[in-house]
Design a binder for these strands. Structure first.
Length: 369
DNA sequence: AATCCGTTTCCTGTTT
DNA sequence: CAAACAGGAAACGGAT
């Protein structure tokens, strides 16, 4: 291949995949390992505040949403409260897109546990009254008609089966071509220009935590607008079907979840740029951008192939500011992934690899296509 | 300062 | 024969 052609490919691919560094992003890392957290194993109605935070964080990561625009007050609620929140309200709190996305995902999670719940989640009249009052308190900006659906969410939706096909990941459609699904290290990608143009206005207009990096973000003083589960309990047969994690829940201590929400990016594994496997994944899931560098061999199984191995290596090197990167060296790093089960071996097929169980963000269900 | 992690570099040998 | 694959060993650079 002529070197000019190669450099053209590299420049285009890099420009497409990684357009502009975006310093304001990635201020928050909700979960450095980016897999769904423990919330994924638990009925949303049983989520602790921590679970809710992790869940929001997961979606922030996954959609590469600019977390600094979140109003943290809106994130401080438990699962029951969350489940009681209507789509409209979520959109009001988190914006049309992100709120809608959260809602969609919440619906499918609720549906997943609908059967368990239908027999247990019955609120008494008095509980309903209390709930209604709480909801009024929690959403003072909402009036009459909005609360009806909110209540219905708690009482009715938990028993709705998975029939609302429209909700199933359909939110991905509008993101599909722009989003890099979750990634634990917030490196720049083509999603970011998208981010900045969509994350705007709705959130955080008055949030005290918004951008101030200084001393004012004091979680102790932040308001906690929602708390239902602390005042109301869902009726359950004692000891029956209590779908919650084993043992003692992670030490919560009010507002610590909030703290964690803010801090985790700083404290845990800070961003170190992308990992190789994420880089590869992102090439694959943006086929329109990848200049024929790689292709899926089996999309569902996560099997893929290098078409231009040296070009990919150059691109990787370019990203790491290492002009001497070669496929030979890159492939050594790939082979290290076998042990960690980020990749699986594919025997007898040259330049073919397969994503393993410890990789995320490449599946159809995750990317939406 | 020490250590850990995820590579990067180099190398020898094997397979396709 | 060339290109890939396999992995050991050691070095490296960033982060904790």
């Amino acid at each position: 291949m002529a070197s000019s052609e190669l450099s053209l490919i590299l420049n285009n691919a890099n420009a497409n995949l990684y357009p502009e560094p975006q310093p304001h992003l990635s201020m928050i890392n909700f979960n450095s390992n980016t897999m769904a957290g423990s919330w994924d194993q638990v009925n949303p109605q049983m989520w602790t505040r921590q679970n809710v935070l992790e869940w929001i964080g997961f979606h922030v990561e996954e959609s590469r949403f600019d977390a600094s625009l979140l109003n943290m007050n809106y994130c401080n609620m438990d699962g029951l409260t969350l489940c009681a929140t209507s789509k409209e309200t979520l959109m009001g709190m988190f914006g049309q897109r992100f709120g809608g996305r959260l809602h969609q995902n919440l619906e499918s999670l609720k549906a997943r546990y609908a059967n368990d719940l239908s027999e247990n989640t019955v609120l008494s009249e008095s509980e309903l009254d209390i709930l209604e009052n709480i909801l009024h308190d929690s959403f003072p900006f909402m009036h009459g008609p909005n609360l009806g659906p909110l209540l219905e969410t708690v009482v009715v939706q938990s028993s709705i089966p998975t029939d609302n096909s429209e909700t199933k990941y359909s939110y991905f459609d509008e993101y599909t071509n722009q989003l890099t699904p979750e990634s634990d290290h917030g490196y720049d990608s083509l999603t970011e220009s998208f981010q900045s143009s969509h994350a705007g206005s709705f959130l955080n207009p008055s949030s005290p935590e918004s951008s101030s990096s200084s001393s004012d973000s004091d979680p102790e003083n932040s308001e906690i607008p929602f708390s239902i589960s602390s005042k109301i309990t869902v009726k359950q047969e004692p000891g029956k079907n209590q779908k919650r994690g084993r043992g003692r829940p992670p030490k919560p201590r009010d507002n610590e979840g909030y703290e964690h929400f803010i801090q985790s990016k700083k404290s845990k594994h800070a961003p170190r740029g992308t990992h190789l496997w994420e880089f590869i994944r992102d090439i694959l899931i943006h086929p329109e951008q990848n200049q024929g560098l790689m292709k899926w061999e089996d999309r569902r199984d996560g099997v893929f192939k290098f078409l231009k191995s040296e070009a990919v290596a150059q691109l990787w090197g370019q990203k790491k500011k290492n002009s001497s990167m070669t496929y030979e060296k890159l492939s050594r790093a790939m082979r290290y992934y076998y042990k960690r089960e980020i990749l699986e071996r594919v025997d007898g097929r040259r330049l073919v690899y397969k994503f393993g169980k410890n990789s995320t963000g490449w599946r159809v269900e995750e990317t939406g296509y």
